[in-house]
Write a protein that binds this DNA or RNA. Sequence first.
DNA 1: AAAAAAC
Length: 438
Amino acid sequence: MLTDFKSLGLSDDLLKAIADNGYSAPTPIQQKSIPLILDGRDLMGLAQTGTGKTAAFGLPLIETLLADPKKPQPKGTHALILAPTRELVNQIAKNLIGFLKTTPLRVTSVVGGVSINGQIKRLSKGTDILVATPGRLLDLVDRRAVDLGTASYLVLDEADQMLDLGFIHALRRIAGLVADDRQTLLFSATMPKQINELAQSYLRNPARVEVSPAGKTADKISQSVHFLDQKAKTDFLLTQLKNQPDDMSLVFCRTKHGAERLMRKLAQSGIAAGSIHGNKSQNQRDRAIKGLREGDINVLVATDVAARGIDIPGVSHVYNFELPEVAEAYVHRIGRTARAGAEGEAVALCAPEEIALLRQIEKLIGIDIPVASGDVPPMSAAEGRAKRKGGQRGKPQGARKPSGGMRSHGSTAGGANDNSKQARRPRRRKPQGRQSAA
DNA sequence: AAAAAAC
């Protein structure tokens, strides 16, 4: 059965904008999310990479704001969208602007790494939708350049990362500043169980839309793994890249230094390569992505700054030159290819010391990645035990456990069995206040 | 343990 955007409850103006932007039929995450959001529900939306999550929250948000009789206050904003990297914020804003051409709504994006003055000036006039990275937003809050109290919609893109250690502090502060009776929307392709629990405290009577199990990789990505020593990886990658001179590749490394070093080696060997990581200026970062997009380079070597959300059409290969420490990052990295129905290839290079990481990734995505070359290293006794036991991912010491009491509010002391699904506590029925009142 | 995110 064919569902179109019109039947999802969007108005004619927006339908025209959707068509003008080249969208024909809504994706499953859009079909399921849009009516719920228009209905005013809080939402947890989980869907594979490249299936249109931005429009899944952006379109109903715009529709709602168009119907909203309230005018934004001076310096105020109606809706706040947060994302973990500057590039992703800018991309979201760009997508939204595409839908707003025929409307009076204003989108403003604020990120670090660029002058703050223009952002202050724009915000002084108020905005309907504000897209931001957390650090710069809080800077603007401290300068009294933005009033979040008028924001009655909060969206967290890449929600599991926004709720993880590196962002949670800023996020809590921001959530305490937006309107208490807001509508909250969380979206991601991954949602680890521990983070999901924390996420619930930001939601009020939420609907959950899960198009496929969280962590599942996109269908059109063909995955493989090569086993080889760390020192053999560079030559291997060079051979691969030289065999596909017309393809567009993204190569992920574990560290900024490693990414820079690898990019130089590739460039010395005649590959048109660039790099992107947090040690580069924003200008350099933007140029690197633009370079890949416009064909000045074929290969972009990156850290996880480029792992999530970034949409570069035409990326045919994603190489995991080093496997990520956190299994979820693998799902996002390879999700830079095979977007919007395209096909793509994900190639992992696994050194013997990375085998445990590989097994964690396979456990998360629910498949064994086909071995394309090299010998499968023998499983150590410790790994054997861990795999048989199943259960815990990550370090036994609990490196990713949220610190302090940040998630203690929900589960009562003791927290006996975290695996008991729904049975444990009745907080669904009795929605205690969300985490928001600072 | 690394990366990201403010100056």
